[in-house]
């Protein structure tokens, strides 16, 4: 096996803007000027609270956005150098499940309840490969074994409702990995699972990623899962990426007040605090975003310019970017001196 060239860009999203037309006539800017890239073989985490636009971003990459009411108003999504947004639906269906595949949070709703899991696995294999039913069946059994399902040759005839949540998620991963995708998008794949099962599924995903040499876009709200799996992290807030950095750097040297606050608000096993620090207020709805910085109403470091002027993406170092006025100019030093969030 030749080594994966991790320098090579696999997916590049530039200046993506997605709007939703609401029934009351308002426009919701769900994703606003999002740019990022994923290299081959890399695990990138996209973190954010509900409503931050992380799932919408991933659906846009898969071209699964409901249009209308959704609309991609600007931007490009390049995959291996080609803009996915230019593809016809038919061309896109060759990419989906083959080059890019997806694992969702709730496997019960994403698996079809009236077909056996073998049926669904074989479908995704035969959709993209010219193989006989028999070969597809063998491949399906092999995949089920690979994701750690015992008695795979019997389990292949089971229906989704006969499996537990962890098992269903294993099947989902098997289906997603069936055609050795170059990119796996995992949208909160372990959120519905218990911790001991979550640990199993995370281990499995990392193993599959290695064997199938895929890159992963890992969408989650759980910072500690990020710390254990990702190479790089992007923090999303109200439709924008507010900070992006290699995982270690993000945890040890966060620059955006939102990232800092998120890290502090996690109850953790190894610290003892009387009160958890919390972020006051709520995420603003996408149809009533603040004029300036979107985090300003909840930010304890908010300055005058934050209320009116949207911060640009600034470079901390080559791999570390942040969207915050604090980082521009002299505030940078003041912020560093004042120390982190109290």
């Amino acid at each position: 096996m030749e080594p994966i060239n991790t320098q090579q860009v696999l997916l590049e999203v530039s200046n993506l803007k997605i709007q939703f037309q609401l029934k009351n006539g308002k426009q919701a800017k769900v994703v606003d000027d999002v740019s990022f890239s994923i290299h081959k073989g890399e695990t990138v985490a996209l973190v954010g609270e509900s409503g931050s636009g992380k799932s919408i971003t991933s659906l846009a990459i898969m071209r699964l956005l409901p249009i209308p009411p959704g609309e991609i108003t600007a931007g490009t999504i390049h995959f291996n150098g080609n803009n996915l947004l230019d593809y016809k639906n038919k061309e896109m269906s060759h990419i989906r499940g083959n080059d890019i595949s997806m694992v969702f949070q709730e496997p019960m709703t994403s698996l079809d309840p009236v077909f056996t899991i073998g049926n669904q696995l074989m479908e995704s294999i035969r959709r993209h490969r010219k193989v006989s039913k028999k070969e597809a069946r063998e491949k399906a059994i092999h995949l089920l074994q690979e994701v750690g399902i015992a008695n795979a040759d019997k389990m292949i005839a089971e229906y989704p409702h006969q499996l537990s949540g962890g098992m269903r998620q294993r099947v989902m991963i098997a289906i997603a990995m069936a055609n050795n995708p170059q990119l796996l998008i995992a949208d909160e794949p372990t959120t519905a699972l218990d911790v001991t099962v979550q640990a199993q599924i995370l281990n499995l995903m990392m193993k599959m990623k290695k064997e199938h040499r895929s890159a992963i876009l890992f969408i989650t709200h759980d910072m500690s899962v990020v710390a254990e799996t990702a190479d790089r992290v992007m923090v999303m807030y109200a439709g924008q990426i507010v900070e992006e950095a290699p995982v270690r750097e993000l945890f040890l040297n966060p620059q955006h007040p939102y990232t800092t606050a998120l890290l502090k608000t996690m109850p953790s096993l190894d610290t003892d605090v009387e009160r958890l620090p919390s972020i006051p207020g709520i995420v603003p709805p996408a149809y009533a975003l603040p004029d300036g910085c979107r985090f300003a109403p909840r930010c304890q470091f908010a300055m005058e310019q934050c209320q009116t002027l949207q911060p640009e993406v600034l470079t901390v170092n080559e791999a570390h970017k942040v969207r915050c006025h604090l980082f521009s100019g002299k505030e940078e030093r003041a912020y560093a001196e004042e120390g982190s969030l109290t």
């Binding site: 899962v225 270690r248 190894d270």
Partner: peptide, 22 residues
């Protein structure tokens, strides 16, 4: 249960006691 919780620790990899099955 305690060892299955993901932790933020980059310096010492944790000693997980993996539980088999469900």
């Amino acid at each position: 249960l305690l060892s299955a919780i993901p932790v933020v620790n980059f310096d010492e990899p944790k000693q997980a006691i993996p539980l088999q099955g469900e």
